[in-house]
Design a protein around this nucleic acid. Structure first.
Lengths: 182, 182
DNA sequence: TGTTCCATGTAATAAGTTACATGATTTA
DNA sequence: TAAATCATGTAACTTATTACATGGAACA
């Protein structure tokens, strides 16, 4: 993100726009980290005046910083560290002791996922209309970002499907139980 | 996990078996957390002798602990906090400046995902052969766990597909570029 | 006149990782 | 006899969250 100079505030905007879908960071994490990375020699900074507001401190990666990024990528994919809180919740849903509440949970999850899917589809439509080269003739940086969007679309669709299937299975169990113990 | 009494060591085994797929914790996180949760009144513990090894400290949730779990579930699904490191890597893959290295990255990712998928399919086959009620007549706790397995299978398949599509698109770009600047 | 945006940060706390430390028993 | 399993933890460090603190400019 710091191949070109940007402030901590700029980075937060970038997180909120695109990275948010698979990574997030708060300003209160970003500012100290930028200071630390500069201290470690991976970034350099300078203060510049702002057009509308207080002065900005903009950071840019150093040669050492660029090499650290390449090392991270060349080390291969970081897999097996995912933490997905809502799946953990589903795992323990039997503790609610009430199929209706479990169904409500899954319906709420479904609505979250459906809204997320719409937001990704909006992004796609937007990119599509703004660049005729979309998706396969895009310049490299946009192309790889488009790959992440594609995965997001697939995965979130998959989540919606799974929610629907799960709700149907839960409904079936509920009626089966009712008829068994009348 | 502590509806029935278990030691920190037991919990780690549970993480390694099933929860691992969407959440993990190290022993060095588990032991201090158990102590903290007991201090906070969410757990109680007692020391018991072990059949084969040193004495065990087993923990069990208190009534307050049970209520805290219910509150976590009834608060609704925790969405929008996912951090998926390998997607962040793909996002920045253009920095490698070499399509061959990007393709290598995606192939490695594909192999990871394919292995993960196989391990989930093994789990499914195992459950299927061990309980005739699989999947829809299972008791509640196993049923909800099966839902998480189902999502895992769907998602990981989706990742494999996406890797394959992405590799094909990258190959196409590589040859397109070659013919353009000969 | 109140809210959002711009822009910076610190402080306290919580969560999580890596490395270190111990020692018996079981299995290959 | 070497390795894995059983079983507990601490220490140092990194990472991340929540709350607090400031203050001007634009907008409605």
């Amino acid at each position: 993100m710091l191949a070109e100079p940007h402030s901590g505030y700029d980075l937060k905007k970038e997180f909120n726009q695109s990275l948010r879908n698979f990574w997030n960071a708060e300003l209160s994490q970003i500012y100290p980290q930028l200071q630390k990375l500069e201290k470690d020699g991976l970034l350099t900074s300078k203060q510049v005046a702002s057009e509308n507001g207080p002065p900005r401190r903009v950071y840019r990666r150093s040669e050492q910083g660029r090499r650290a990024l390449l090392a991270w990528l060349l080390d291969g994919p970081n897999v097996g560290e995912e933490r997905i809180s809502y799946i953990a919740q589903v795992f323990f849903l039997s503790q609610l002791n009430d199929p209706a509440e479990a169904i409500a949970f899954m319906q709420e999850l479904r609505e979250h996922m459906a809204r997320w899917l719409e937001s990704l589809q909006d992004v796609e439509r937007c990119w599509q209309s703004e660049d005729a080269r979309y998706p396969d003739q895009l310049p490299d940086d946009a192309f790889y970002q488009q790959l992440t969007l594609e995965l997001g679309l697939k995965k979130v669709k998959c989540n919606v499907e799974w929610c629907d299937e799960s709700i149907a299975r839960l409904e079936a169990r509920k009626t089966a139980k009712k008829s068994h113990i009348p």
